[in-house]
Amino acid sequence: MDLANLNAFIAVAELGSFSGAGERLHLTQPAISKRIAGLEQQLDVRLFDRLGREVNLTEFGRALLPRAYQIINVLDDTRRALVNLSGAVSGRLTLATSHHIGLHRLPPLLRTFTRLYPAVALDIQFLDSEVAYDEILHGRAELAVITLAPMPHPLVKAVAVWDDPLDFVVAPEHSLALKKDVSLADIAHHAAVFPGGNTFTHHIVQRLFQQQGLAPNIAMSTNYLETIKMMVSIGLAWSVLPRTMLDEQVVTLNLPGLQLTRQLGYIVHTERTLSNAARAFMSLLDAQGELS
């Protein structure tokens, strides 16, 4: 089975677009179509239904996709295992990370890594933590540094590096800012801006309210913490933000007896052979975790 055709199939299946697959693989759309046609001819099945601009997997395509991932991942593992025998820390390291961690936690580690291992080409992908999680599961990234999921997938190894305390915050002129102490029930009556419903942070905060039989009044949501901070600072709503982001633009609310935190760290696929570059970066992360 031609690997170029298989990679084209995976790209079209994931993106639902021949043109999008071409952009990802740096090929023209006709070249992608030719590769898909070659794979369909080789397997003697139709892999995609093309209805207008929509591209959907057929039953045969859905059956092939998980096997295609397995084939590509086995070959990648074999290549890494052979390269690892040399002991050299080189090659490409595909690292996925969230915008928040990439801005607030990783820069010193990246600086150290690039100084120690100049032969490694870093491919850093800034993604939501939940998207980065899928990149690891599907083998498209080797290592991800993200907000850790409360319940990790069985095929994912998660290692905590930083405790990331979360604080309830409002604008200085917000009515809640005038109170010395507030309760979760007090906060629930006011409009909130939350991380998106698909995020791990959203679930952490939502679970806290549910434990007290309360429901937050979520007026709006976004996955970008900087946007949340801006909305809070102009008085639109309260929210929960990492303590590392706080400054004079917002006021921290005091909730006696309540402490909220999330864990930041790295994840890898348990069945993937890791490159020497990935292991070297993990060692830096482990050392950082010991210091934190």
Rank of each mutant, 00 (worst) to 15 (best):
D247E: 05
R46F: 01
I71S: 01
S275E: 06
A277C: 01
M1D: 09
A280W: 06
N5L: 02
A215M: 13
H26D: 14
D247V: 11
A188P: 07
V170L: 08
L143N: 09
F168L: 12
A88D: 11
V159H: 11
E226G: 07
M282W: 01
Q42N: 11
F60D: 15
L103P: 00
M231G: 02
N223P: 09
L284C: 09
I10G: 00
I32F: 07
L6C: 10
Q288D: 03
P118E: 12
M282P: 00
F281S: 03
R92W: 03
L291G: 01
L116F: 09
N217I: 00
A219V: 02
S221D: 13
S19Q: 11
P242G: 04
D186L: 02
I146V: 15
S175D: 12
V89M: 05
A280S: 13
D77Y: 00
A121G: 01
A88I: 07
L47S: 02
I124W: 05
A237V: 05
N5W: 11
R140N: 13
A280I: 09
L285G: 08
E248Q: 15
R207M: 10
L255A: 01
P195Y: 06
L95I: 08
M151Q: 14
G87S: 10
H26S: 14
R111F: 03
A21W: 01
A88L: 13
L176D: 05
I71N: 00
F209R: 01
D247N: 14
V251E: 14
Q211Y: 03
D2N: 15
Y133H: 15
H189D: 12
Q41C: 00
E59I: 09
S19A: 12
G16Q: 09
P30F: 03
R50F: 03
L116I: 04
A171K: 10
L65I: 04
F9E: 03
A280C: 08
G265L: 05
T261G: 11
D77C: 12
K229I: 09
S17K: 08
T97N: 08
K157A: 13
L184E: 03
V193E: 08
P216S: 02
H190W: 14
F9D: 07
L246C: 02
N84W: 03
D164W: 00
H190M: 03
F9K: 02
A177N: 05
D164P: 01
A144I: 08
L43I: 07
